[in-house]
Design a protein around this nucleic acid. Sequence first.
RNA 1: GCGGUUGUAGCUCAGUUGGUUAGAGUAGGCGUUUGUGGUGCGCUUGGUCGUGGGUUCGAGUCCCAUCAUCCGCCCCA
Length: 457
Amino acid sequence: MKVIQKPTNARGTRDFGPKEMAIRSYVFATIKRHFEAFGFQSIETPAMENLSVLTGKYGDEGDQLLFKIINSGDYLSKVNGDPLALGSKSLLPQISEKGLRYDLTVPFARFVAMNRNDIAFPFRRSQIQPVWRADRPQKGRYREFYQCDADIIGSDSLVNEVELIALFQAIFNSLNLRTNLIINSRKILAGIVDKLGATDLFVAFAVSIDKLDKIGWDAVALELASNGFQSNQIEALKKLFNFEGSNLDKIELLTEFFADNALGNEGLSEIKSVLRLSDLNGYDNANLVFDFKLARGLSYYTGLIYEGKSVDVPFGSIAGGGRYDNLTAAFGLPNMSGVGISFGIERIIDVMRELDLFPDIQISASQILFTYFDEAGQALAINISNQLRKANIPSEVYPDIVKIKKSFEFADKKGIPFVGVIGEQEIKDRSVSVKDMKNGEQRVLSISQLIEYMATI
RNA sequence: GCGGUUGUAGCUCAGUUGGUUAGAGUAGGCGUUUGUGGUGCGCUUGGUCGUGGGUUCGAGUCCCAUCAUCCGCCCCA
C-alpha cells in the first residue's frame, strides 16, 4: 500500500515517547509532591471554555493567540449576512463560541466564581494541565504545553506571596536547579511613571523596561522616546535603571526616589516585608532578587509579580506569577484577591536536559521477560508472570514461540533486566532459568525463590 | 502578524557548472547450523528527492507558488 500522506505532528506540538515520559513524570511528580506539602488541593477544568470567559483577560496580544473552536454543524448557514463581506473579525463570533484554554488562571477564576459557596477561603488550589497558544513556535516555545499552577485566592495577606516563594524554592531545590526568583511589584512600576508625570504611558513603559536586559539601555531609551517620553523623563529613568546593587541598595534608592509617592511606597513596603519573611527560609540555590525592571505581560496582575529564571541556562522564564486583585470580578465575584505561581514544565525540562540533570531516570518497563519453546512453557510463563505481578513485580511474557535469540534481543533492546527461560526441564521442575542481562549470570530458581529474588532487586 | 533558514530512505546527511538505473552511515529484516542478547561478519528491505506549476532535449540541482521546519522579532511558559 502506498502511503499518501507523510505523518507529522500539528505545528508546535510534540509526541512524548517512553523515554521523554520518564523524565516528564519525574518532574511532574516532584512538583506535585511539593504542591501537596504546601496544602494545595488539585482541580481540573475543561480544555475548552466559552470564548466569553477567555477574551479580554490577556490583553490584545493574548486574545489573538487564543485557539478558537469552530461551531459544530453547518455553521455558515446560521451566519447573519454574507460571511465573506463580514470579514474575519465580525464573522468570528458568529461561527465560534468556544476556545482552548490559554492559561490555567482565568479558568480557575471562573471556577471560583461558580463555586464560591462551596469553597473555604482562602482557597489553595493546584492545577496541572496543558494549555494552548496559537503562537509561532520556536526554541523553548510550543503551541501545546503544560502549566503547573498553584494559587491562593481569597486573602490579600502578603503571607501568601511568601508561601509561594517558599514553594518555588522548595521545588527547584528538589530538582537541583539553580534559579533566581526575580520579584517586583506592579505598584512600584506604576509609582515610577506616576512620579514622572507619565501615568498614562504605563503600558508602553512596562513593555520597554522589561526588555532592558535583552536589548540594552540605549535601545530602550529609543523605544521610550518613540512612545512619547520626554528626554528629561528618560534621563530620570536612566538613573534608576542603570543602578546596580543589592536588594537593600535598590530599596534605598527607590525610597529616596518615591519620597511622597503613596503608590510607589506601598509597593516598596510589600517588597520589604516579603524579603524579610522569605530570608528565613534558607534555600541556597533559589535566590530571591528584587529587580524593578520586571514587568510581565499578562494584564491582570496588580501587585507583586515574580519570574523564575535558571542561573545556568538563559532560556526565558521557567516560572512566573503574581497577584491579581480583580480577576474574578469579570465573572461577577468582586473583592476576591488572589496570588499564584505557574511552573513552565516544558522549559524546566529543556533547561535540565541542557544541564544533564537527569542522571538515572528509569524508563518504566518489566523487570523480567519470560520466554519459552512450546505451549506448555507458554502456559507456565503466563502463570508465573501473574504470580510475580501479585507480588508487585512488573513482568511480561513474550507473545510468540520464536527462536530464543529473538526474545533475548527484545529484552535487551527494551532494557528489561532479567529474562526467564522456561523449557522442558523447567516445566518438569516448575522452575525458571533466570538470566541477569547485565552480567550474563544465570541461575535456576523455583517459583517462590524467583519471587523472593526479584523482590530484592 | 513580520523577517530569515532549511526540506533527498524511519533517523543523520552526501549528491561537483542541470546529463543515463539517486548514494553513505545508522536503524530495520534475514543469516552466521538450530536453549541465550549487547560488539563482529555476510546478505537484504526501504526514496514519484516536501507539494504543485514553469524553463529545458533533459531538473534532486534553475525559476515561481505553496506547505512544513528551525531561528529571530512581537509577545510569552
